[in-house]
Amino acid sequence: MEEMVFEIKRTDENGNMKTQSYNVPKDKVSTVLEALLYIKENLDHSLSFRYSCRMEICGSCAMEINGKPHMACSTTTDSLKGQKVTVAPLKHFKVIRDLAVDIDGFLEKYRAVKPYVIRDDDGKYDSEILQTPEQFHEYLDYSLCIKCGICMAACPIEGSDPNYLGPAPLAAAWRYIADNRDQGKKYRLEIVSGEEGTSRCHFAGECTEACPKGVDPSFAIQKLRSSMVGLEFQRLFRRR
């Protein structure tokens, strides 16, 4: 029977690291997540990782596969070249155990950009707010983020400055600014124009390349910047 070798970078609860290899029969599994479950069920009960929906929508199982961040559930074994697969926890996150990483800091950053519609008439819900299909498509792509953290692992700035807000939170800021139902643009621009905001981005575009859901955070960040430039110009001319 044909086998695949999974080389997994493991970390125990005390922070000791080791690399362990497992042979998984190729015809028993079709994705990396299935392979991990196979290992956990049959070969090594102590392997730890996060997983849930197995259809690339819940964002649990982001990890580094063959050196790049991917969702384990949607990475099919057919798409991997060669017999050997290396699996490691997501970069730039603190490892809890094996492949499970601490995403609390990431969610705090997300929370920091006020990722919800801000309206003066909040609390009156007797009809919808009109939104044409054109307005709808202004933000739709940015609303597809599953908070998996892959972009945070791909971003080179996150690697050297852990305080940088990062691609997903900034994309979320733009997602709500671009939504015509929202009136919170000025609050959000103030947050993202701070020292740890858009100015840290150098447009490597790795977040966009890595995103499994086709969100384009690097584009969103540049949009935020141009909005800020626009705002500054307005201020300049108002002063005169």
């Binding site: 790049k68 080179p156 447009f203 490597a204 790795e206």
Partner: peptide, 26 residues
């Protein structure tokens, strides 16, 4: 966790945008 500037020098399987970024810094 924190990779430091040495992380920039890893070009393996990265896109052209990343190349532009790393070279810009260097």
């Amino acid at each position: 966790m924190n990779e430091g500037p040495l992380g920039w020098a890893k070009f393996y399987r990265k896109g052209v945008g990343y190349f532009a970024f790393a070279m810009h810094r260097l």
